[in-house]
């Protein structure tokens, strides 16, 4: 089965623009989206990741679990190309990220959306601008500048906000929103960016349990509806098992296990968190 022409499904301007920069991304379900080959990551003396081999295929929902400092965030940063491995290769969308020119890297990154624990939004801007930031990889400077004064592409932003459940916040200042609402804004930004894969770095760690479930459900639905791929690092095993179909356990920078969600046992989890 093919997820053929992305533009048919997306049907909006951004997809056409994406094609016009000739990205050449034709992915099949089950095609390899990410591949890590013997990846090592060293921060000074700290070995954050060691000898990691990993494949992530299109359409998967992968949870990264493990205690703090196990290398989950580092892995996410390697996958979205903001970090270069000190050893080994990271392949994304059929390209080796560390061999790309800055321009090629940016083109690849357009297809990778990231969500963060601290939301990483610009607090002092209205929600509309933070959502519109999803367009920035293909907007011209003039358009982006004009939009800051007179917001453009309201329809797209409003649709995205409606999808994440806060349509009324369109013109609100971002720092007036609650944590859960801010994470929804970050989700709307990713929706507007319309990537092939969504990476989420502990997206619910600063939210209460009820808000966490809402956001995770939203994430899962968004991903399954549009056939995207999800890689999410989580503190909570329950959330991982409930919302993902593959779980990767990391411990001190090494892969402890990599299993389908329904094959993860209590013993595996206890081994992962054992002191």
């Amino acid at each position: 089965m093919e997820t053929t022409n992305k533009s048919k499904r997306l049907g909006d301007k951004s997809a056409k623009l994406n094609e016009s920069v000739n990205l050449n991304v034709n992915l099949n379900v089950n095609e390899i989206l990410f591949e890590l080959k013997q990846v090592n990551q060293q921060f000074g003396r700290l070995q954050a990741l060691a000898d990691l081999d990993l494949q992530i295929r299109a359409g998967e929902r992968v949870a990264l679990v493990g205690s703090s400092g196990a290398g989950k965030s580092t892995l996410i940063r390697l996958l979205n190309g903001t970090l270069r491995p000190t050893g080994g290769e990271v392949w994304a969308l059929g390209r080796c990220l560390s061999r790309l020119s800055p321009r090629q890297l940016r083109q690849a990154q357009q297809h990778i959306g990231t969500i963060y624990q601290q939301f990483h939004l610009v607090d002092s801007l209205a929600v509309i601008h933070n959502v519109n930031a999803g367009h920035l990889s293909h907007w011209s400077f003039a358009k982006a500048l004009f939009s800051l004064i007179y917001p453009l592409e309201i329809e797209t932003a409003a649709t995205a906000l409606r999808r994440v459940g806060i349509p009324e916040k369109l013109y609100e200042r971002t720092d007036r929103l609650s944590g859960g609402q801010q994470q929804r804004v970050a989700l709307a930004r990713v929706l507007v960016q319309n990537p092939l894969v969504i990476l989420a770095d502990e997206p619910v760690s600063s939210l209460d349990p009820e808000r966490s479930r809402e956001i995770m459900a939203l994430l899962r639905d968004l991903v399954t509806e549009t056939g995207k791929t999800l890689v999410v690092s989580l503190h909570s095993i329950d959330l991982a098992l409930h919302y993902c179909n593959r779980v990767i356990g990391l411990r001190e920078g090494r892969m402890q296990f990599d299993a389908p969600a329904d094959a993860v046992t209590k013993a595996m989890i206890e081994a992962l968190y054992r002191l």
Binding site: R77, A108, Q110, Y116, H120, V122, D123, A133, F141
Partner: peptide
């Protein structure tokens, strides 16, 4: 400056001028 919004925009493949416009200027201008 809070680097987080810039990091997020960078990860999304935004060019430097737009990074400046949406990630740096709104946070510093006030």
């Amino acid at each position: 400056l809070d680097p987080r919004p810039v990091v997020a925009l960078k990860a999304q493949g935004v060019t430097a001028p737009l990074l400046f416009l949406y990630g740096v200027l709104p946070l510093t201008l006030t």
